[in-house]
């Protein structure tokens, strides 16, 4: 949570990766850089279990995020809940670290008496409302996902309505995998508003392989591109100012 930013990758998939490096390793790498990885596994309405269920959990655990297995129907609420809960969790873990500095031992928010806990939660809620959020969304568009894509699109639009009702700023970017040439294709570059994804999902090509690991790597890269871009924005304003 550097400079009041929360960074998340949201991976939406329906199965096991079958190409490239281990996604669990890449998720661990993401966490090392302060990027939380959340994973939502989408199952078909008929089926009860997902082949890649273990992988979904492992990636989220390695990435310090939250995992959830849902049917396509529940996707809308889940995307929202997972993003929110992961934000709260990140903020809480930062506060827990601070608490341990002050109180020592393994004191966490949960060990506080209810009154004190309430005060801490107020701070957590406050931060969750005001912190700036960057979410890189990674959508699996392999053949089996095709029918679920309209639902995914609606869920993402709904997510942007919710997050944009907060006081803090938001930036989203969207990648789909497998890409045409690379592991993942950038569909939407960093933007505060996702309403433009209406058109992008229609022109997707669905392929057979699922390179989850390499796709996650692309997602990590997107954050450094964003950082570079905002640094350049800063530089621009700086030269403008000094030019006057």
């Amino acid at each position: 949570m550097s400079k009041g930013h929360l960074r998340q990758i949201l991976l939406i998939t329906d199965g096991c990766s079958n190409k490239g490096e281990d996604p669990v390793a890449v998720a661990t790498l993401a966490r090392e850089q302060g990027i939380v990885v959340n994973v939502i596994g989408v199952v078909d309405d008929g089926k009860s279990a997902l082949a890649g269920i273990q992988e979904v959990e492992d990636i989220a655990m390695a990435g310090g995020g939250i995992s959830q297995i849902v049917r396509a129907k529940q996707l809308k609420q889940t995307v929202q809940m997972v993003t929110r809960q992961a934000m709260t969790q990140t903020i809480k873990s930062v506060i827990n670290k601070e608490l341990q500095h002050i109180l020592g031992d393994d004191e966490t928010i949960e060990d506080l008496p209810p009154e004190k806990r309430g005060q801490v939660m107020e701070v957590v809620d406050e931060l969750g409302e005001t912190v700036d959020l960057e979410v890189c969304i990674l959508v699996d568009t392999s053949a089996s996902m095709e029918r679920k894509l309209p639902t995914v699109q609606e869920a993402l639009l709904d997510l942007s309505i919710s997050l944009n009702s907060r006081m803090g700023s938001n930036r989203f970017c969207l990648y789909t995998f497998p890409g045409k040439r690379k592991a993942a294709d950038k569909i939407l570059t960093w933007t505060p508003d996702m309403s433009s994804i209406h058109s992008v999902f229609s022109k997707l090509a669905s392929g057979g392989v699922t390179p989850t690991g390499p796709a996650l790597r692309e997602a990590i890269m997107s954050f450094s591109k964003l950082a570079k871009r905002s640094r350049m924005d800063h530089a621009d304003t700086f030269t403008e100012e000094s030019g006057v």
């Binding site: 709260t88 809480k92 928010i109 949960e110 209810p114 806990r117 309430g118 801490v120 939660m121 107020e122 957590v124 809620d125």
Partner: peptide, 9 residues
């Protein structure tokens, strides 16, 4: 617990 704490607030 966080949920309860927020509601209680």
């Amino acid at each position: 617990q966080a949920n309860i704490a927020s509601e209680v607030n």
